[in-house]
Simulated assay, not measured.
Amino acid sequence: METVQELVPLAKEMMAHRSGRKLVKLYVLGSVLALLGVVLGLVETVFSPFSAASSQQDREAAAAELQAARERKALRSRALLEQGKRPEAALCGRALSNRQHAS
């Protein structure tokens, strides 16, 4: 249906041909749902620039958090190296001692 004005003549014609009321209700329901879909699409189109701006800010905040976490990790590894401890030896020391007699 291109316009809403076509619905009334269609309904009258269907009633004149003795079409069931269920069929008329089905056409009216379909038309209402299509109209609702168009309205929701227009609302989404109008508000999409605002949601895109907020998602851009969220991505920038996540990137800043990731960068801060990387910097903290780098500082921790530098501190361990300055103390003379290697992180690999600290993590694997016990596992190596348990596997000395394994074949």
Rank of each mutant, 00 (worst) to 15 (best):
M15V: 10
S19K: 10
D58V: 11
R76E: 14
K12P: 02
L35G: 14
S48C: 00
F50N: 04
L26T: 15
L75N: 13
C92K: 01
A62G: 02
Q5I: 06
E44N: 10
L80W: 03
E82V: 03
S48H: 07
E65H: 04
L35S: 09
A64W: 01
R76K: 10
A64G: 01
V24D: 07
A11C: 12
V39R: 01
P87Y: 02
A64R: 11
S55R: 15
E44C: 02
A63Q: 07
A34K: 05
E13G: 09
T3D: 10
T45M: 09
E82A: 12
L36C: 06
G30C: 07
K85N: 09
D58Y: 04
F50T: 05
L81Q: 12
L80K: 08
V24H: 08
G37F: 05
G41R: 05
R59Q: 09
R70S: 05
A52H: 10
A53V: 10
S19T: 07
V46I: 12
C92P: 00
V8T: 08
L66K: 11
H101N: 15
E82K: 11
V43C: 04
S31N: 02
E2H: 09
E6I: 03
A16E: 14
C92D: 03
Y27E: 13
A16T: 13
V38F: 09
A102P: 00
K12H: 13
D58T: 09
V32W: 00
R99C: 09
L7Q: 02
A16I: 10
Q67F: 08
A61G: 00
E44A: 15
R21M: 13
H17L: 11
F47Q: 08
L33C: 03
L40K: 11
R76Y: 14
A62K: 08
A69N: 12
L75I: 11
F50D: 07
L75F: 03
L96P: 00
E2T: 10
L23M: 14
M15F: 11
M1G: 11
C92A: 08
L66C: 05
Q5T: 06
L80E: 05
R86A: 11
R99I: 10
H101V: 09
A68G: 04
T3E: 10
Q83Y: 02
G41P: 01
A69F: 03
Q67Y: 12
Y27F: 14
A63G: 04
S31M: 02
V8D: 08
N98A: 12
G93L: 04
G20H: 14
K85P: 00
G20F: 03
R18A: 12
L29H: 08
L23N: 15
V39C: 05
E60N: 03
V39F: 08
L23P: 00
R18Y: 11
S51E: 10
S97R: 09
G30S: 12
P49I: 05
E65D: 14
R72F: 03
R94Q: 02
M1F: 13
L91A: 13
H17T: 07
L66E: 14
M14G: 01
S55I: 04
S19E: 15
L40C: 07
R18W: 04
S19C: 11
A61D: 07
A74P: 01
T45R: 06
R78E: 03
L96F: 07
E13W: 02
Q57A: 14
R18K: 15
R78H: 01
L91Y: 04
L75G: 02
L81I: 05
A79T: 06
R18G: 14
F47I: 10
A61V: 03
L91N: 01
N98E: 13
